[in-house]
């Protein structure tokens, strides 16, 4: 359940931003979680409510945006879309793939109240 630690990191970033920007309540948190990120979006939503309880983000709505998995196929010498780390190249079926996108986990933006 490293999703708990990840949500705690989200709360840390929110609190840092509150100190800088001076907002008092968070209404919405937008995260980008790539399809190849080592995280379960459902588990993340599940932890979010309990981790944010009693904080400025209590009751905030959590929006998760996903981004597609992309890899460089060393055999085909081109960029291809992949659904998971165990998928092969859709063109040649090989596994000489270097993941280039879709593993990101970012806090994109917050909707806040002053």
């Amino acid at each position: 359940m490293h999703e708990v630690s990840l949500v705690e990191s989200v709360l840390d970033l929110i609190q840092d931003s509150a100190r800088v920007n001076g907002f008092v309540r968070v209404k919405k948190v937008v995260l980008q979680i790539g399809q190849l990120a080592n995280v379960e979006p459902d588990a993340m939503s599940f932890c979010f409510d309990s981790v944010t309880r009693g904080s400025i983000a209590e009751g905030a709505c959590l929006e998760l945006l996903d981004s597609p998995g992309v890899a460089w196929c060393m055999t085909c010498q081109c960029s291809v879309g992949i659904a998971s780390r165990t998928s092969g190249c859709p063109a040649c079926g090989g596994h000489t793939l270097q993941v280039t996108g879709g593993s990101e986990m970012r806090v994109k933006s917050l909707e806040v109240e002053y």
Partner: peptide, 23 residues
């Protein structure tokens, strides 16, 4: 405008930081 009687207003704050940036 924010309501001077104690109401509030909303705004979007761009963060664009990796979840693991502190680690």
């Amino acid at each position: 405008h924010g309501d001077p009687a104690g109401g509030s207003f909303s705004r979007i704050v761009e963060i664009e930081q990796d979840l693991l940036s502190k680690n």
